[in-house]
Design a protein around this nucleic acid. Structure first.
Lengths: 263, 263
DNA sequence: AACTCGTGCTTTGCATGCAAGATTGGCCGG
DNA sequence: CCGGCCAATCTTGCATGCAAAGCACGAGTT
């Protein structure tokens, strides 16, 4: 099977076997195809993914660096089980790092024009939230605008890291946000299910506005504090999600959480 | 060469080929065997390290995760070049994370007895510094006590992270401190070369004392601020080191720094 | 003389073979 | 009846073969 039938790019624009395998495995893990603590054997994956053991091993190794897998002392890899404490700590750590990013963004701002992009994101989210509050439109959160808001939120957070001008910080944050639930937009989906969703969006967006204001006025300490507090909103979303399994099942990586009652 | 002559553990107690190769390569990189930006070919390493390409590739992949190498878009790996800004940012990021660790240690302290280990480290370092100030002994920094101080310093910082009770934070810090010069004890060697070394040690240790005191009195904000400031002392050490090439050459990873004048 | 194309070599990415070690099942002894 | 020990199988880690993709150097053309 070495060179025969080699030129079929299955679905995405992934070229290397390792890259495709990495995406596939990560998806399988976050979708819950494996139980936490389960040992991952390579041979079954050969059949399932259609690649040889080499790229599979590479991908497993990377996933263990990401934190989704753990290297077993006897060899091989085991699906990582996340405790609730792990989730809280990941969120707290992300808050610390995003706080630092916001502070650095304020401290290192040179020209006001650097904020153009960030303001655009803020304004567009602003408009969406106001529109959502409009009693005539009755807050119909259609799937398109929801996805748009998700993208905007992610872009907003990413832009702050860009403004911090610290590649070290970006690298570090990327590692932290690879933990399920730790990403800033991982649980926006949950929030949309809440009865008080409009209020939550309002609070969250007020944070965004405050962060932009703090940065443009070079108020590093304020920017750091608000960004930290902003990240802590995620915690409440997780708590709500955990109390409602119907919500939880829709969140990637939920199956990797070790709920006390279930053990 | 598959199974023949396989049972010779070269020097250390490393068992797996990959592990040995990883340590070897990291050592070679930090020792400066490669130029920053240089492409790392696998085949020469086969001859040089005496293992096949498979463990070499694994080790290279891990080093690229650590940040010492970069994956080239065309394939293969390239030695990472660190700018001065990268170093500052790594130190800043470490400070942020160690600050968070100190704060969490204070916030999460349950019993005073948890501080026993930390106090022991502090006291022993205390004794060493007082002894060093003794005019009779005239501050002869023999190599043994220097190594002991290094270990103590490292253990002290590690213990604070332990007290933070956050495995996420520990993982994140480990990634940051893998960057050359970012580790808390990476540049203690430089400090020992400075004319004002005794004063530097005094200040640094006063930080240690303050951090312990803040933790035991549950003063999270104070602990965080002092730990951040403590990490920033590293920056001055780097600046001094950069001005004296004879000092710099003794520091691991120094060759990976891209000095503006040299480019 | 310079630019472009082609050819050969180097290098990487992947597949696979092989042996050492772990794991599981069964068998024997207590 | 239960526990421990041994053997067979499965699994991983490593070495190596092979092909495709770069890369460099040189030749031919304008």
């Amino acid at each position: 099977m070495q060179s025969t039938e080699s030129k079929f790019k299955t679905s995405a624009s992934e070229v290397s076997q390792t890259g495709r395998t990495l995406l596939n495995l990560r998806g399988m893990l976050l979708r819950g195809d494996f139980q936490p603590g389960e040992r991952i054997s390579e041979l079954p994956l050969v059949a399932r993914l259609g690649v040889s053991r080499t790229p599979i091993r590479l991908a497993l190794d990377r996933l263990s660096h990401e934190g989704l897998l753990e290297a077993s002392p006897t060899g091989g890899f085991v699906v990582r089980a996340f405790t609730l404490e792990d989730i809280w700590d990941a969120i707290e750590t992300r808050g610390v790092l995003e706080g630092a990013a916001a502070r650095l963004a304020a401290e290192r701002l040179e020209h006001d024009s650097e904020l153009t992009q960030l303001r655009e994101y803020r304004d567009e989210m602003d408009a969406m939230i106001l529109q959502n509050d409009d009693p005539d439109k009755f807050a119909e959160p259609d799937i398109d605008s929801y996805a748009r808001y998700l993208d905007l939120n992610e872009a907003f957070h990413s832009e702050i890291v860009t403004l911090a001008k610290s590649s070290m910080l970006r690298r570090t944050l990327q590692q932290v946000t690879s933990v399920p639930f730790a990403s800033p937009s991982a649980l926006l989906y949950v929030r949309s299910k809440l009865p008080r969703a409009p209020h939550m969006y309002a609070v969250s967006h007020e944070h965004h506005r405050s962060i932009v204001e703090a940065i443009e006025q070079r108020q590093g300490t304020r920017a750091e504090a608000v960004a930290r507090e902003h990240s802590r909103m995620t915690r409440r979303n997780v708590e709500v999600a955990l109390s409602d399994t119907s919500i939880l099942s829709g969140v990637p990586g939920a199956s990797l959480i070790k709920v006390p009652a279930a053990v």
